[in-house]
Amino acid sequence: MNLPSKFHQVTITDPIAGAGITFTIPTRYVNLKFLNVGAQGIVVMADDLVTTQRVAIKKMQQPFLLTMSARRAYREFILLTTLKHPNIIRLLNAFTPDTSLSSFQEVYLVMEFMTHNLHEVIHRLRLDHETLSFLVYQSLCAIKHLHNLGFIHRDLKPSNIVVNERCVLKVLDFGLARRRNVDMRMSDYVGTRYYRAPEVILGLNYSEKVDIWSVGCILAEMINHTVLFPGKDIRDQWTQISSVLRTPDDHFINQLEPIGAVYVRSLPQHLARAFNEIVPDSNFLPETENPKDHLTLHMARDLLFNMLKINPEERYSVEDALNHPYTMVQGR
């Protein structure tokens, strides 16, 4: 391959797949180290010799192989250049080493570097109320900005949220984001199953409240250190949800397509489990209870209770969640 001027090639080993990945990047980026890999690309950290900052570089995974992957790559690029918010990852640069349209195959995105993703934090640390509240508040601020611009993220999960040592949080990976429209159903939705809202699973038209459901699942995971609804497949995902939160009432079931309604009614009937069983006292740090600022396990459960409503008509909006006492303290 004839490299364009001021580009060099660096091979990075993906420790998960055990394969070498070649990055063809400007010479300003050095000291590449593997960070993570996802459905849409592999990410490394690097040092930028021009700005002297550490950055994250994402090599898009075969962005033009399929029409769907090309759309995702385009969508992520457009949103990253559009969204400007302190809790949304910042795009610093974008480039391709290809020099003609006929050879155009590789796209790289350079973003600000954050130390950890939330998945790592959840499984390494027990979080106090102040930290839980602050992380949820920042997530909601990012989502509110996205919703105000008419977009739904649709794939919020711990691995799509990054944090640094100062607990500053940023949301990333916008390849599955969509503009709100009048008919959004499951066929148009491919977000991660564990964080997928009931209305999506059951094929109902859905709204931006699917993102609130995801944040509720993430909050429960931050408290319990385990996935709240670890469904093995889409049907088991619904079973997990309904067995914990209850079988929905007729008002909700009657909104389903006939085949969906028959399916839901054919399953065993479940009553709601108490939230002190869903997120037990033992999973909180009692010494961090702060009733004066509403940073208590009772308030955390109340926020969860309202974000994890099966019926989206009853579920909190992002404004409701930001005005809840458990998160409102962070906005003062």
Results as ranks from 00 to 15, higher is better:
F104A: 10
F134D: 12
K209E: 13
D183H: 11
V210G: 02
L125H: 14
G203A: 14
E120I: 12
G175F: 12
V171P: 00
F174G: 00
V107H: 03
L118N: 00
P158K: 09
L125M: 06
G150F: 09
L118E: 02
L132N: 02
H123Y: 12
R154M: 06
S214H: 12
F174P: 02
V190D: 15
L156D: 01
M111S: 02
M184C: 06
I152R: 07
E165C: 09
R193F: 08
C217G: 03
T115P: 03
L156R: 00
Y189K: 05
L146Q: 04
V136S: 14
M184D: 11
I152A: 08
R178C: 10
F151M: 15
L172F: 08
K170G: 00
H116R: 04
L149T: 04
L156V: 10
E165M: 15
N164V: 01
Y206G: 02
H147K: 05
K209A: 09
M186G: 09
A220H: 06
N117L: 13
R180K: 08
F151P: 02
L156P: 01
V107Q: 08
V121H: 07
D173I: 11
T131N: 01
L140C: 10
G175V: 03
R180G: 05
L125V: 10
K209H: 06
S159D: 14
P198C: 12
L118Y: 07
V182H: 07
H147G: 04
Y194F: 10
F104S: 10
V110C: 13
R154P: 00
E199I: 09
L172M: 14
A177L: 14
M184G: 04
K157Q: 03
Y206I: 04
M114R: 06
V136D: 11
D155L: 05
H147E: 13
S133K: 11
L125Q: 15
L202I: 15
M184W: 04
F104D: 13
I122E: 13
S214R: 07
